[in-house]
């Protein structure tokens, strides 16, 4: 494939336009801003080297973010030996179905109040960032791919090299852990009324 100056200018426009998302997503994957910038730049370089795999210009965004995730995952595999998806399946079963909604929902208040909506209203961006950043890596990766980037289960499975069923269960566990972290933060920061703290729902 012969790449022209025009191709490169188009690529630059698209990358710069996507940069806040590219960096923002990278920032959720690695621990500090400098590493996130390195990851974003590395993904841009890989994207250009694989430009012939981009079938349509309209697919650029999803294609670029898949490359970002693959760049992160391949770098992680090189750096350290991580627990496999399978070996993490047995961990922390109690966190499988934690639900902030179940803790807060009060059916008898349907017409007079909505504690769960108020809870979300009070959450700040940094509360969500901290909760995501605090997830164990194997969970954080799938939550970022599904919820932050909107990737399909199949795309996630392809990226992490795991069966789709594993992705589904890992995502459920990751989201549950995320809600548990948000709930704990809500208690600590006084976002939850004290009369809800004793609830023991799922």
């Amino acid at each position: 494939m012969v790449l022209t100056l025009e191709d490169r200018e188009w690529f630059e426009r698209e990358v710069v336009s996507a940069l806040p998302e590219l960096y923002g997503t990278a920032r959720r994957l690695v621990k500090n801003a400098a590493d996130a910038e390195d990851l974003a730049a590395e993904a841009v370089a890989k994207a250009w080297s694989r430009i012939d795999s981009l079938r349509e210009h309209s697919c650029f965004h999803g294609w670029l973010f898949r490359i970002l995730m693959n760049t992160y995952l391949s770098g992680r595999r090189k750096r350290t030996v991580q627990p496999t998806f399978e070996s993490l399946e047995a961990d922390d079963k109690e966190s499988e179905s934690f639900s902030v909604f179940a803790r807060l929902h009060q059916p008898f208040l349907l017409w007079w109040g909505n504690p769960e909506r108020e809870f979300l209203d009070r959450l700040l961006r940094e509360d969500l960032e901290r909760a995501v950043d605090g997830l164990p890596e194997a969970f954080r990766v799938v939550v970022v791919m599904a919820d932050v980037q909107g990737m399909s289960y199949q795309e996630i499975a392809d990226a992490v090299g795991a069966p789709i069923g594993t992705v589904r269960s890992r995502l459920a566990r990751g989201r549950s852990l995320l809600q548990k972290a948000l709930w704990k933060h809500g208690l600590d920061a006084g976002l939850v009324h004290s009369d809800r703290t004793g609830t023991t729902g799922p």
Partner: peptide, 10 residues
């Protein structure tokens, strides 16, 4: 709300 944290100032 989670989608929003995927964008950051560059």
């Amino acid at each position: 709300q989670l989608v929003a944290i995927g964008t950051a100032a560059v």
